[in-house]
Design a protein around this nucleic acid. Structure first.
Lengths: 245, 245
DNA sequence: ACAAAAGTGTTGCTTTTACACCCATGC
DNA sequence: GCATGGGTGTAAAAGCAACACTTTTGT
């Protein structure tokens, strides 16, 4: 037993972690339509408090070790489900972090994923003493190199938002253009011209009208749209990221 | 001994591999100015033949196991130097491949890097029965999932060439605009308008004239340029890739 | 009627693209 | 001179950004 433990310590541990993004209003409420209402939505992420050494007590990204019989993405999904009950609509590999001194205890390499969840999906997260939502750009000091990891994931989210069609991973199957624009504005942190935004989206071929409208607002009823799925070309390499809508 | 071997087999092996790109003319000659001459340059990469099971005899990417006391990038550089004598000007992480069945023997996760080398640097590769250059888009069937990996690396190279300043990693410190354009044409596999290319480069702020010219050609002597290094902003995230020119 | 957001039109500016043309050198 | 690539000019086309204006609902 001590022998096998020594050998294990002499090998490199392989873990996965995931940066999960969701949009919530400034107060942190995901209930109701989180985007498109008055309060401007912002990017939040859930963190878990470490309950053992090292770095016990600090907030950290959800994650865990990779089992022998599961893929890297499979490990990410399993750990996500176990620690946060979340099953994200979008999940993509971010980067492998493996500096020698990034974990004080044993040598650890973490394959980090990043995920987007819809507001209704985000509701599944059972909050508690050790699980909380945090605004993405005002985080406390996290465990290990997790601050750097979140910064990088945020950069990737904002960069990719500008040239690909990942925004719909924050929304339901049907959405108005105002809601879609709200996603872009929340992530990019700047207002967008509604008229120009509409034309860009319509001419991109990424969305199509469903035929339905939303009544009930004290204004003209907006049309509903859905994603066509013709836009994978833009951001997919030979690895074909899975946008399992 | 058999005990520790069993425990090791029960853990996940961590390896690094690297896709190395260089430009060579159609016949595969890197001597002389590989770009800017008559023959259109194309993308080549060096492969090594596996000399042990599994997949013995097949061509594969250079790589090896990660040692306990070295970083991932350090492991990539060490393996590169050991198996190919190459010290690339540009080296960046590509992706972590970790499917359960990607290696028939033991469970193996490979952190793959991609690298760019200059023609003169590429000369250092000592060719032999088990080390050869191959044109990037007509490869034989490689070991493991290495065909998929090369395809992805090629896609990243071509994508990144369009919005960042990595082209100079294929060139020396000083270069003419025709040579630089030759790099773009070789990688993107399409001719570019010399006049417009010049203006785009000059207005980008990425290059500046050295003052020197190249005499000897049977035409007007072209000016020499160098990279300014002001363009890291474009492609760097919080991870600050090292373009150690 | 009025407020509010949906949706359309128009204009000016910047960027891209295509291609004509002049410049400097070796032979 | 003439061939060859280096380098400049220019104009049409396309894309982008700003903003005025019309439409349709709830109250």
């Amino acid at each position: 037993m001590s022998d096998s433990s020594d050998v294990l310590r002499a090998s490199i541990g392989l873990a996965v972690s995931t940066v999960i993004f969701a949009l919530r209003d400034a107060e942190g409420d995901t209930s109701g339509p989180a985007v498109g209402t008055d309060a401007p939505a912002t990017v939040w992420l859930p963190l878990v408090r470490r309950i053992r050494e090292p770095q016990c007590g600090r907030w950290a990204l959800p994650g865990g070790m990779v089992e022998l019989d599961e893929s890297l993405e499979g490990a990410a999904r399993r750990n996500l489900a176990e620690t946060t009950q979340l099953e994200p609509a979008y999940l993509e590999q971010l980067y492998a972090f493996g500096d020698v001194d990034r974990s004080p205890d044993r040598r650890l390499v973490s394959i980090v994923y990043w995920a987007l969840v819809r507001p209704d999906e985000a509701e599944r997260l059972t909050l508690g003493e050790n699980v909380q939502w945090f605004p993405a750009d005002e985080l406390p000091e996290l465990a290990f190199d997790h601050n750097l990891i979140v910064d990088y994931a945020l950069w990737r989210l904002r960069t990719k938002m500008e040239y690909s069609a990942i925004a719909h991973a924050f929304l339901g199957d049907e959405f108005t253009l105002a809601e879609l624009r709200g996603v872009y504005e929340a992530v990019l942190q700047k207002p967008l011209d509604p008229a120009n935004f509409r034309r860009q989206m319509e001419s991109s071929g990424a969305i199509e009208p469903t035929g339905g409208v939303v009544t009930g607002g004290r204004h003209r009823p907006p049309k509903l749209y859905r994603y066509t799925g013709d836009v994978q070309l833009v951001d997919a390499g030979p690895l074909t990221p899975r946008i399992s809508a």
